[in-house]
């Protein structure tokens, strides 16, 4: 009887400590997205992500042939849909990317490049919960666009300055941004328009 009471007391104590710890964590800025995950959290998350991809999906091979047309199409797709978080060069160094928790990975590095084609496809197609990575493509049926993106991700470590310049033209833009671009173009060409805002901070 005493053992049962002691056991129950220990459980209650543990529960109370967990609650107090959790509340303290959240109240001390635990929901802030500015910090990077710690080494242990990142390691566990990477392992879980790996285990969460079914073996059949991991071993799937890319049904789309790699050729210049495929790469060009995927590049356009990436610039339009992915670059806002991942950056055109795959570094993840963007305003939104830098504000996410966890940050998007630098996809040029081994942590991404060492994933199988199937894993990359699975991540693009299904997204990753509790991160900023959404699921892309139709829920049912073939998603060839995502397979093409896998080819482009493989190309990222070797992307050229010319390709990056082309991608910049393909990035989504707003009327205000277009106006700003036009203002910059005219300035660089030597025109002297009336000054507007000298520097533009973007959020």
């Amino acid at each position: 009887m005493k053992k049962k009471i002691a056991f129950g007391f220990a459980i209650l104590l543990l529960a109370a400590a967990t609650i107090v710890g959790s509340v303290a964590f959240f109240l001390s800025g635990g929901l802030r997205a500015r910090e990077q995950p710690g080494g242990v959290e990142a390691f566990i998350a990477r392992r879980l992500k790996h285990l969460a991809v079914p073996r059949a999906a991991r071993e799937a091979t890319n049904p789309v042939a790699a050729n210049p047309d495929t790469l060009s199409e995927a590049m356009e797709h990436f610039a339009d849909h992915c670059a806002v978080c991942h950056a055109n060069d795959g570094s993840g160094n963007t305003d939104i990317g830098n504000g996410l928790y966890p940050r998007p990975p630098d996809m040029r590095l081994p942590a991404t490049q060492d994933l199988s084609d199937g894993e990359l496809y699975y991540i693009i197609h299904n997204g990753i919960r509790f991160t900023g990575m959404p699921a892309f493509g139709p829920a049912e049926g073939e998603d060839l666009d995502s397979w093409k993106l896998v080819h482009f991700i493989r190309h990222l470590p070797a992307i050229t300055e010319e390709e990056l310049a082309r991608m910049k033209e393909m990035n989504p833009t707003s009327p205000a941004h277009l106006k700003e671009e036009e203002e910059m173009r005219r300035f660089l060409e030597g025109h002297d328009d009336p000054p507007s805002n000298e520097s533009k901070k973007h959020h």
Binding site: D95, I96, G99, E183, F187, S199, K200, K201
Partner: peptide
């Protein structure tokens, strides 16, 4: 996160 994710990118001309 998206509301608080203030970037500091700036253009100088």
């Amino acid at each position: 996160v998206s509301a608080l994710a203030h970037g500091t990118a700036t253009h100088f001309m």
